[in-house]
């Protein structure tokens, strides 16, 4: 062996990954189908119960909504800040802020929004002062739209960071060529701009979907049981707050992994179609 120490490093890494990452994941799959009397579909079937169907619905709805909002708003912000007419300082301000905000999530983020638009929040009371009662108008921070608002705070910056390179790779000459050939701005975006951006927008959407779908801390601190999401349901099972067997938690977890794999696979298929004009491997 040329470098036994090299294999030691590789082996150690693979071993730790196998024990603490791959095995627990496999364990979930096993646990979900094995009960006291051997193989059973009992736990998988509980996923069909009203409570858990709702949880998956909420999680999916929230993830799709916040990923879509994030992609659109993030792309628009990146587009505006990268326009040639935009001042130079703007760019560094936006990118550095995006790097911070994209990583500002979880409990602190939840409390920032509670302090702002919670029932006692400053904005809520300021608006009430001038006669606008947010909560009477049907808004609630502790609802899916409310959660979407909070998630946008990290989703949009995340998208800005992801999409900047794609915008930068677009040649100004494409725009000029299109204009020169008689195309309007709208025609340019429909026929050239968006198709060229499509693969990057799609992969950005997937990343945002995943980050919202698996988010737990923000939701936990905000909803504490008001809205059930898959992540908060799993944690309820784990902490014994509901009288479910741990196998149900495993089944829910497997359900999440299946959703993630399906979304990833679907997006790869779409991405292959959308990017058939790029360099083939």
């Amino acid at each position: 062996m040329k470098a036994p120490i090299a294999w030691l490093f590789i082996g150690a890494f693979l071993l730790v990954s196998a024990i603490f990452l791959v095995a627990p994941t496999a364990m979930l799959a096993v646990q979900a189908v094995i009960g006291d009397d051997g193989l059973t579909l009992e736990y998988v079937q509980t996923l069909g119960s009203y409570r858990y169907v709702k949880a998956f619905e909420h999680s999916l709805y929230l993830s799709v909504l916040s990923a879509t909002v994030g992609v659109i708003a993030g792309a628009l912000i990146a587009f505006a800040m990268l326009k040639p007419g935009a001042p130079r300082w703007l760019r560094s301000v936006v990118t550095s802020f995006a790097a911070v905000a994209a990583n500002f999530a979880g409990v602190p983020l939840a409390f920032a929004f509670i302090s702002t638009v919670g029932t006692l929040g400053l904005l809520t009371s300021m608006l009430k002062h001038i006669g606008v009662d947010l909560y009477a108008m049907g808004f609630s921070l502790f609802s899916i739209p409310g959660l979407t608002l909070v998630y946008s705070y990290f989703q949009i910056p995340l998208m800005v960071i992801i999409i900047i390179p794609a915008f930068e790779a677009m040649q100004p000459a494409w725009r000029e060529a299109a204009e020169n050939l008689g195309a309007t701005g709208g025609q340019y975006w429909r026929m050239v701009g968006l198709p060229v951006l499509a693969p990057s927008l799609l992969s950005g959407w997937i990343l945002l979907f995943g980050s919202a779908f698996s988010a737990y801390a923000t939701a936990y601190a905000l909803t504490s049981g008001n809205i059930s999401l898959v992540t908060t349901e799993i944690s309820a099972v784990l902490s014994g707050n509901v009288s479910s067997e741990p196998q149900v938690g495993a089944a829910l977890s497997v359900g999440m992994i299946v959703v993630m794999v399906l979304v990833l696979a679907a997006s790869q298929m779409l991405a292959r179609r959308a990017s058939r004009w790029t360099v083939k491997q």
């Binding site: 000459a173 060529a177 060229v196």
Partner: peptide
């Protein structure tokens, strides 16, 4: 406006639309 002038322009960087075939590029106008 440039789009109303009916002039054909060729750029140093080729600037073909990367998402279109040669034929689609030519029939863009």
């Amino acid at each position: 406006a440039a789009s109303k002038r009916q002039m054909g322009m060729v750029f140093q960087s080729y600037s073909l639309f990367p998402n279109m075939t040669a034929l689609d590029n030519v029939r863009f106008g």
